[in-house]
Design a protein around this nucleic acid. Sequence first.
DNA 1: CGTCTTGTTGACTATGGTCAAGGCTCGTGG
DNA 2: CCACGAGCCTTGACCATAGTCAACAAGACG
Lengths: 235, 235
Amino acid sequence: MTGAPPALRRLASLAPLDTWSFEAIDAALAKSQKIRRRRDILGEGKPIAGAQLLVRGWAARVKIFADGRRQFLSFLLPGDLVGYCRQPAPLAVSTVTTLTEVEICPAPDTAALDTVYAMSAALEEAYLLEQIVRLGRMSAMERIYSLFLELHERLSRAGLVTQTGFDMPLTQEILGDALGLTAVHINRMLQDARRAGLLEVTGGRVQLYDPLALAGQIGREPVRVADVLPTASPD
Amino acid sequence: MTGAPPALRRLASLAPLDTWSFEAIDAALAKSQKIRRRRDILGEGKPIAGAQLLVRGWAARVKIFADGRRQFLSFLLPGDLVGYCRQPAPLAVSTVTTLTEVEICPAPDTAALDTVYAMSAALEEAYLLEQIVRLGRMSAMERIYSLFLELHERLSRAGLVTQTGFDMPLTQEILGDALGLTAVHINRMLQDARRAGLLEVTGGRVQLYDPLALAGQIGREPVRVADVLPTASPD
DNA sequence: CGTCTTGTTGACTATGGTCAAGGCTCGTGG
DNA sequence: CCACGAGCCTTGACCATAGTCAACAAGACG
């Protein structure tokens, strides 16, 4: 599984996949389409055609105010679902926009994938709750640690963490709009964190020197949504 | 439908109900159990036995830090589902605690209710996103207006809004922990809002003098998750 | 090369937090 | 019937975290 595409790795880590599902995912991945940076995949209030699977690149759910204020709700990473809804005639409740060039494909649909998608949806909700806690009751520094640990955890499921570091194509402006802070303040906090020897952000890459210590410092536990621990696939 | 129980009114407003579903809901409501104030219905990290329906009273999803900080994630109102999950062996990702004495019953399970529950879950997600926006990018005053408008909208679905006002059993401390503010600041903002003639909070009851004007002031639109508008049942 | 985007830094400001005291209401028990 | 205490609300004085504004630097890219 080590060499498998990140999106497949993530899905396979959520629940056992049968042969049909593997083939369905392979077939879907082969139909991937490129989308350029800064394009909207879904528009707030517009109908959703069908669920899609993010294959490569980063996207984000975002709400934009009439006066220009912006709030990122969550980041979408390889293996995440976009527009997966179970009600009829669904409307997007937030815009989904690409942060990098991206590849997406229609989400494959087999019976065995129901559980995988349910797990995925449950995780998504858990991370939304984490985001609420960050914004509501954490200091600027804690918000940064918490977000980086979440990204670390989620990317490791897709096999995209290497040596405690990962690529993160987010500007300080975007981090600010995700964490309810200004880009200036993000900048200062990142420098403090670097000077404290806890992490480093350079050239689109994040290094967490000791993720467990960082998690301990802010009292963060890994997210779990089911009793059968959905682990990242072993290497 | 006007005289129907609030929980039934809410469910019926989400999607058409067939006769079986009506009967199943009636039968479930008859099995309601009382739970006292300040009791936990679900515990963070603990297994969830099955979905339940909140019949009467208020509850809340909450996360509590080791150092005592507290963040309310959402409020649960009559007709809301508690612990509705589609993955196997689900674990609660947040504590659910009662804010008043409450009645709950097992969530009835018929085929026609699948759509209702999907709508309910979609709405719940939409309100979580609204909460993120509040905490991330709104001023103290805007957060208060936004929350009250959300409660107004949700309670009206269950028929619990009378003359632009509704009962709200929340202390200023709880409002603070929901809105990422302190109780002291909530107090000051509520007084400013009252002096501005926009709303009044007295003795567990909220009066919004002009909900539409308030919504306009903060640029809020009613939440919609499907193209077939799920309206509150007409009186 | 210019231009655009992103990151960095400093000086100053403001929104909301903290701490502390006192008041009101209501339920309980003497 | 009244005294007491708990919980909640209110207010004031002071403080701190993060925001604003502005200028400049460093790359990236045509």
